Simulated scan of single mutants.
Amino acid sequence: MRLFSAQDVPAVRRSMSWAVGTVTTFCLLVIILGTGAAALVGSRSIIAADPHGRTSVLMLSQVLGGAPSSAGATILYSAVAGMVFITLLSSVAGMTLAAASSLAHDLFAHAARQGRAEPRTEMTVAAWTSVAVGTVAIGLATLVQSWDVGVLTTLAVCIGASAVAPALTYSLFWRGFTRTGLLATLYGGAACAVVLMVFSKAVSGTPSAVFPTADFHWFPMQSTGLVSIPFGYLAGWLGSRLDHRHRAADSRESRLLYEESEERLLAAAE
């Protein structure tokens, strides 16, 4: 959503750089903190407190702070709990603003008004859209508060790796990538990730699943990336090959044009 509201190509690349760096750092920290919690707290204690392990970081802070009743443990626990709250608050606010910006800028100003909307009107729509998106998010969060919705985080990462990453890679490095290939990558990779996740062990079939009492899984993994990422690349390649317009991309004129613009494209030039 943040990419759609960017002004130009350099802004998109800056957004992508921040997104990749943030997600990579987050994944590394999850591995480090999870391993540390399992080693110092113990997996049995973590599962006893919460089968989904959502309190493992807080329990780790208590162990690192010393005795449970000591001042150090209290201060460290409070600091970690405060950082968790601030992180969640900033994430929700960022996603709400990004959704409102995309809806107001793309859907209202460009799709509905054909680019003729006044800036003041667009800002008003964005403000009311923020209220609407926030209200819907609060309602959904209230309805599913007892569910293990952590699977949505895994699904979001899998969709990004299976649909967005292949589309960006092909767009930058393959001159034969066509519009049909782009749509096949985006829809194919996203659909593959969603279908496999719905029928995975993360949704049903295990005590820690979203629906622990049901069992309709046939995909044996918790994450879909091992299958959906290659499928996204394959869909983009196959869609471009089946598209009759890929022949035009192989012509000498198109090849020369691509080679002339490739360096500027990779450098995020205007």
Rank of each mutant, 00 (worst) to 15 (best):
A163S: 09
S171P: 03
R247P: 12
L183A: 10
P68Y: 09
L3K: 10
A141W: 07
L183H: 07
A117N: 03
V92A: 15
Q62C: 11
R113D: 03
R44E: 13
A127F: 01
A156F: 12
R175K: 02
G176S: 02
E259V: 09
S228Y: 05
E259D: 12
S17K: 06
M221Q: 13
T142G: 11
S251F: 12
E122R: 01
L64V: 03
A267N: 02
T169D: 09
R44C: 05
A249F: 09
C158S: 13
S204N: 00
L40Q: 06
L186G: 08
T213C: 09
M16P: 01
L266H: 00
D50S: 10
F85M: 13
G181L: 01
T129H: 00
R120A: 07
S171H: 02
L226S: 05
F26W: 10
L3Y: 10
L76T: 07
G82V: 07
A163G: 10
G72K: 11
F219L: 02
L107R: 04
L257V: 10
L183Y: 10
D250W: 08
Y187S: 08
T87D: 15
G94P: 00
Y233L: 12
T87G: 15
T154I: 13
S171M: 06
H52M: 15
A37R: 02
P220N: 13
A6D: 12
R13H: 04
A184T: 03
C27S: 08
A100F: 00
F216K: 01
A193W: 01
S78K: 06
A112G: 08
V9K: 13
A112N: 03
E122K: 01
D215C: 05
G176I: 00
G150R: 09
A99T: 02
Y258H: 08
V164N: 04
G160K: 04
Y170N: 02
S261A: 08
S61F: 06
